[in-house]
Amino acid sequence: MDNREKVVVIRNLYKSFGDLDVLQGVDLDLHREENLVVLGRSGTGKSVLIKIMVGLLKQDSGSMQVLGKEVSSLSTKDLNALRLKIGFSFQNSALYDSMTVRENMEFPLVRNVKNLTKKEVTMRIEELLDAVGLPQTINQMPSELSGGQKKRIGVARTLILNPEIMLYDEPTAGLDPITCVDINNLIHEVRDRYKTTSIVITHDLACAKQTGDRMAVLLDGKFKAMGTFEEVFPHAVDERIKSFYDYNFINS
């Protein structure tokens, strides 16, 4: 009997796009301060799952409870209140092109936290830029940053509202191996420092091994395997999970 607090509870979740059935009965429990890595090949619905979690997409059927609230039945106001407790780090960072790093970070803060002085806003921004190791970029435009720097700023921007849950969509996609390790370390640091619960979406097993307490492999619209890295991968019975492991660790 697991007595840890569940922050995300998914039951029998279905989602399709036209004829394409993406999620076909997904079940998941995510516990507080746990780092769960969702693995799967491209197009298996990993990103769809976390987009349903923040209300960017709506499931066809099934239940998605986040922090005790059924996401699909929330009013716009309640959904926005829930969104403030969830940080979403996008695959391409999604920094606002027309704003500097400071303005990017100010944007969610000044809109959602009232009565902050300019000094308090600046202090909060500087603290988070320090935490991601990029204090010097504060007045730079996103176009002046490297891919890894953009990812870090993206994470800092999501942290500015003190989220309880962090969702990372392909955090290491398109980055060189050294920057990948930096980003993986950052995910760990964020969990330890801000006590967040995380879901990391990836198809990079090295990232999964480094960042996850638990792995969940999404195949055919369902989680086919779940457990620690050692439980899921080295001795996998399912051929597709086995080949996923072999390709990532043996071929590379």
Partner: peptide, 13 residues
């Protein structure tokens, strides 16, 4: 296409 609109939405704007 670069998900900036989604980013705005998830930050409750």
């Amino acid at each position: 296409v670069t998900e900036q609109i989604d980013a705005m939405e998830v930050s409750a704007t």
